[in-house]
Amino acid sequence: MSAQAQGAPGDWQRDVFRELGGAASAGAAQEAAAPAALPPAPPAPGEPARHGRPLPPPTPVSVPVVGPALDGSGPRHGDPLPRRAGRALRRGLTSSAARQTETATRIARAIQQPITTGRQIAVTSIRGGAGKSTVAALLALTLAHHRHDPVLAVEADPALGTLPRRLGATEIRWSCGDLAGIVDPSMQITDVTGYLLPFAGGGWLLPGSQGTIGARLDVETYRIVMTSLRRWFGTTVVDCETLPAEVARTALTTTQARVLVAPATTAGAATTRSVLDWMGGLHRSMLPTTVVVLVHTAPDMGLDGRRAAEYLGAGGARVIPLPYDRSLAAGGEIRTALLAGATREAAALIAAETMDRAMTRGSSRGGPR
């Protein structure tokens, strides 16, 4: 990450680190630039504070994501066997294979475009059950697969969120609130990843909680985590609470791009249009940096995709349908090898379009089509 991202004039991140460090001094910046001699280890409960810093919270006990008695559903292919066989046959046709390769290459280049400072992407929705965490997980998995810089998925929906389950986590120990009390400017990325969970493709996950009912993530904790981690991760996907929660509103206005998830229904499109109008009133750059994902939770949703794209795309947002997929409908870990072909294509397009908009920040230049 650039030096500007770490210590730009007026950047309140330095004030956060000053509060976390206890004693403020001009040497704090030099300490942040120097590599840590040893990975910081949380002290045992009752151990005195080191260097005048407040004690970090005690090490939490790992909690399983899903109880063993409930975790017995087997994986399913997103496409039925006849469709998979037909797709394999079509790949044998030279012209069709060439077109698919050209499209995949163009989309991959958009996902892999170089960055100079971390890009943060907020994923939210107006109602629960729209597929928000599923889209956030697909986006994080796709970015981690294609990009070479570190990818982070942050669960900012702490009350019984499903992002850890979707990304294959089996147990949770550290959460956003825990890390906010531990993060230190002397840390390196190897220190930070000790508090994160790895997921497929080389990405990292920071859960919002251990699945406790009533868990909260306030705006201050969210800001500490996001500003502290941005210098280590090239791209960050934030699975937010549903709107109009305060953290979700903060994420919408502080990230470089945003994904608004809605069910592919007439009611879902109408509600989403209202949200887009509200977002457009916040700042003129909001809609050109927004991707709307219409999630099909059943094989035949009945929504006219072309008309929905015109209706929701007014103002600059890009509308992308996410087709029904049997493997996603199961609700467990997302296994990319089992996804339907159309689902993988849609996930890649969502990632490419989102990265393109995060980089252009409202430019009129369109993304991959």
Results as ranks from 00 to 15, higher is better:
residue 124 T to V: 09
residue 274 S to G: 07
residue 134 T to C: 13
residue 40 P to N: 02
residue 71 D to T: 11
residue 323 P to D: 14
residue 245 A to L: 12
residue 225 V to F: 10
residue 119 R to N: 09
residue 123 V to C: 05
residue 211 G to E: 08
residue 11 D to W: 01
residue 166 R to I: 02
residue 169 A to N: 03
residue 260 L to S: 06
residue 148 H to E: 14
residue 110 A to N: 08
residue 42 P to A: 14
residue 8 A to G: 11
residue 36 A to D: 02
residue 49 A to E: 08
residue 35 P to Q: 02
residue 109 R to H: 12
residue 229 L to Y: 06
residue 234 G to I: 09
residue 145 H to F: 13
residue 328 L to F: 05
residue 273 R to T: 08
residue 284 R to K: 09
residue 60 P to T: 14
residue 171 E to L: 00
residue 207 P to Q: 06
residue 367 G to L: 11
residue 172 I to E: 00
residue 23 A to C: 01
residue 226 M to V: 08
residue 286 M to G: 02
residue 323 P to M: 12
residue 112 Q to I: 00
residue 259 V to A: 03
residue 244 P to N: 10
residue 116 T to V: 14
residue 126 I to L: 10
residue 229 L to E: 10
residue 177 G to Q: 15
residue 189 I to T: 14
residue 142 T to R: 12
residue 283 H to T: 13
residue 306 R to Q: 14
residue 343 T to N: 11
residue 110 A to W: 00
residue 125 S to R: 05
residue 17 F to L: 02
residue 133 S to F: 15
residue 51 H to G: 03
residue 85 A to K: 07
residue 23 A to G: 00
residue 181 G to W: 13
residue 162 T to W: 02
residue 219 V to Y: 14
residue 105 T to A: 15
residue 119 R to F: 01
residue 276 L to R: 05
residue 284 R to D: 11
residue 161 G to N: 07
residue 272 T to K: 08
residue 312 L to S: 01
residue 3 A to S: 13
residue 97 A to M: 11
residue 297 T to E: 09
residue 363 S to E: 09
residue 163 L to D: 02
residue 145 H to D: 11
residue 121 I to D: 01
residue 7 G to L: 07
residue 216 R to V: 15
residue 28 A to G: 02
residue 208 G to M: 12
residue 360 T to G: 06
residue 63 V to F: 01
residue 350 I to M: 06
residue 139 L to I: 02
residue 145 H to L: 08
residue 271 T to L: 11
residue 130 A to S: 15
residue 234 G to F: 13
residue 75 P to V: 12
residue 89 L to D: 11
residue 45 P to K: 04
residue 294 L to Q: 07
residue 145 H to N: 08
residue 216 R to K: 15
residue 5 A to I: 10
residue 227 T to K: 14
residue 220 E to C: 08
residue 272 T to L: 04
residue 79 D to H: 03
residue 243 L to S: 00
residue 19 E to Q: 05
